[in-house]
Design a binder for these strands. Structure first.
Lengths: 333, 333
DNA sequence: CAGACTTTCTACAACGTTGCATTCAACGTT
DNA sequence: AACGTTGAATGCAACGTTGTAGAAAGTCTG
């Protein structure tokens, strides 16, 4: 049995509006009235009808988070942090998976659920800034992840070039010279790949090591299987690397698997470094040296940007915020 | 600029209700009227206000899925399948993380969001059937995962006892005799742990191998770290196992890590088997032998049960459905 | 050709909530 | 004593949708 404001009002002997005021924490209420209403609410186990409230206020209390895939550990971990950060604003998070497909991403940006959500946190893979700019939805959007174009919306990222440079430099400092890279992408959409590749090249250049394109392997997706396949290709092509920087951790785990199958030891024969600091890398054999983006900070910043846009009288240019990272040295490099 | 039925109606020169009828696919409409309305809808890019619709109909088109943790790969993969299965019913999925804590689980069962969702798919860790029975929410609920009590709600699970027995038997058949188990739980809530332990003991009994409690290690949580710690305890206590059945894959990955640190080879010195068939296990070194529950089937059955409950005139006793599984033999055992 | 039925469309009320305007009483100021 | 201010509570309308009832026009039945 579901109760309404009216039922509570009758039980407490006050008007409907007074109950509403109690529920919403209105200031000017006699303590005694408030107590009586609260008692009635408790007795009836009253809970506001969120549909009616949204209809009236235009707010739903729900934000959407759209990521490529939930079973990519990095995104699963990110989701967790966003849910936690949103809870601080009393928001519920609705999760969308785009699979990284342009069609699904366009649908998300155009707001399939624009009537259901107050705002969107979006980690696009395929869509470019230009496409995102002409989206039909009017709700605020915060973008996550690397973009080389300064987009039309608020944006949170880590400094990928610096992070990639730093971890590649670590490989160089530990004596490696034939350093491969796995995860390059040609698509216009592969901003993360481009920035991490740039950092890798900067590190090589700084150490006066010649950049060799044949040591760079592409990976259309960044799953374990792609990492394993790319590593196998590098080895079979005779690239003979003594280290490999993988553009994310799942690629790195796949690469380590392929190295193992080729009878090579990590890190003795080939050092391996990743990016993302997913949980798996802390327990793999060997444990994985990686860049650890501050996922909690990314989530917090994104949610706060959204809150700012939703606050009355918000406007101004899109914000570009940078979250921190650490290089985690473990066994693999 | 957001448009309403009224705007479309004015543009098409019909009543508001006629537009509503077009949107909802009402049968008795002149094709020409329908076309005119559809044109107006397209021109204005009209989209129904879901809050108003829910207020009117009592349905939101959103179902909730509550799992312990998203960054446990098994649940991340399950979420993906549930989202896919729900899409077939035009449902949006809202995801809740309980962390396995009784308080959070009670809140979920009692329906924090009961006004926002049509139904709930719930994978509880802590709550017992009795507690779930007296929940305050009135929306239909489908339970996932193992329970030894036949609960108060529809329920989907795989036959854990049989699966555990089968994979343990595989360890025995490959010549192992000192078979340890990792993941036991004393809490009344640990139904999965109890059923997997039962299957393990049945397999030992069938092979006339004595059950040795000192070869069974508890794990409060089923993370990699717990698996590593439990394995280390077994080894340090001199249990000298030649195989270990871990009650899930993350425990197994942690256990393999600990074996590695103790200088033991998998599977040569110790065979390792897991449960869940998470992606990581297909690329670990060595790859992980495991029980692969049919996650897609679990998700599909759960969503269909919910659909059945939401259909008009549904009633009857809770359903108990069983999803299939396979034993995946890989390198670790 | 009267009556019943069907097709197509419409008017109205309601779903439960909150913003706004208002009332009434108590209090403080001149 | 008259006036303005503040506190506490209320009444009404509106948010955008759909179910119900029904009107108007056309079609079928005997």
């Amino acid at each position: 049995m579901r109760h309404r404001l009216k039922d509570v009002a009758e039980r407490a002997g006050v008007s409907v509006k007074t109950v509403s005021n109690v529920v919403n924490g209105y200031a000017h209420l006699r303590p005694e009235t408030r107590a009586r209403v609260e008692a009635a609410i408790a007795e009836l186990n009253y809970r506001p009808n969120l549909s009616a409230r949204s209809l009236r206020t235009g707010r739903t209390g729900v934000i959407a988070l759209a990521v490529p895939e939930l079973d990519i550990p990095y995104f699963a971990e990110l989701v967790r942090h966003v849910v936690d950060a949103a809870a601080a604003h009393d928001w519920t998070v609705l999760i969308d998976q785009t699979g990284g497909s342009p069609d699904r991403e366009r649908i998300v940006a155009d707001g399939v659920r624009d009537q259901l959500i107050d705002g969107l946190i979006f980690s696009p893979l395929a869509l470019t800034g230009a496409e995102l700019a002409k989206r039909a939805d009017t709700r605020p959007m915060v973008l996550l992840g690397e973009r080389d174009d300064h987009g039309p919306a608020d944006h949170v990222a880590v400094d990928n070039v610096a992070a990639a440079r730093e971890i590649t430099t670590h490989l160089i400092d530990s004596g490696r010279r034939r350093i491969a890279a796995i995860g390059a992408q040609r698509a216009t959409s592969g901003a993360s790949a481009r920035m991490r590749l740039r950092g890798y090249r900067q590190a090589l250049a700084a150490a006066k090591i010649r950049y060799e394109p044949r040591r760079v392997a592409a990976a259309a997706h960044w799953h374990r299987a792609d990492g394993a396949a790319a590593m196998a290709r590098l080895l079979d092509a005779g690239a003979r690397p003594d280290a490999v920087f993988c553009f994310n951790d799942t690629l790195a785990l796949g690469a380590m698997r392929a190295l193992h199958e080729h009878g090579l030891r990590v890190p003795d024969d080939v050092a391996v470094a990743g990016f993302d600091d997913i949980e798996d890398g802390r327990f793999s054999v060997p444990t994985l040296t990686t860049v650890a983006p501050d996922k909690a900070e990314i989530a917090r910043l994104a949610v706060e940007l959204l809150a700012k846009r939703l606050a009355p009288g918000s406007d101004g240019a899109p914000a570009e915020l940078t979250a921190g990272y650490r290089v985690e040295l473990r066994e693999s490099a």
